[in-house]
Simulated assay, not measured.
Amino acid sequence: MTHCEAAAGCTAPPVVRIVAPSGTETIACDVHGARLLAATPDGRVYSLPGEHEDYATAVRYAAKRDGGAA
């Protein structure tokens, strides 16, 4: 699933890849990535290559801190 499919109308750049235990992958912005990670038990998050290297840590923290709420 792509970020556009997961969050129609979102204009933030995609910065992370969320991987569910089933292997399903979703590319998302930081806010929607945190929400998705919080809703995916045992999900994993990876930063997209390039200038987004530190986003996985921030998204993981946001998902644990407040369930991914913006």
Rank of each mutant, 00 (worst) to 15 (best):
R65D: 09
K64F: 05
T40Q: 03
R17P: 03
M1I: 12
E5A: 03
M1T: 11
A69S: 13
V15D: 05
L36P: 01
A62I: 04
A6G: 01
I18W: 09
C4D: 15
E53Y: 09
P14A: 14
A6T: 08
V16K: 01
T26S: 02
A58W: 12
Y55N: 13
A20I: 06
A28M: 02
G50E: 08
T2F: 00
A69M: 04
D30V: 09
P49F: 02
T24E: 13
T26E: 11
G33H: 10
R65V: 01
C29D: 12
D30R: 15
G23I: 11
R44Y: 00
R17A: 05
R65N: 10
P21K: 13
A6Y: 11
E25A: 10
T24R: 12
G33I: 00
A70S: 13
V59K: 11
A39R: 15
R44F: 00
A12G: 12
P21G: 08
I18F: 02
E5N: 11
S47M: 08
E25K: 09
H32C: 09
G43D: 11
V19C: 00
R35Y: 00
L37Q: 13
G9T: 11
P41M: 13
A12M: 06
T11A: 03
A56V: 08
V19N: 00
V19F: 00
S22P: 07
I27D: 08
E51Y: 08
H52Q: 05
P13N: 01
A28R: 08
S47I: 06
A58M: 13
V31S: 14
A69W: 01
A56Y: 00
H3K: 15
Y55S: 05
E51D: 12
P13L: 03
Y55V: 04
P49V: 06
H52T: 12
E5V: 03
R35L: 06
S22L: 03
R65T: 12
E25H: 03
R17W: 03
V19M: 04
E51I: 13
L36C: 04
P13I: 13
Y61G: 00
I18A: 04
D54F: 05
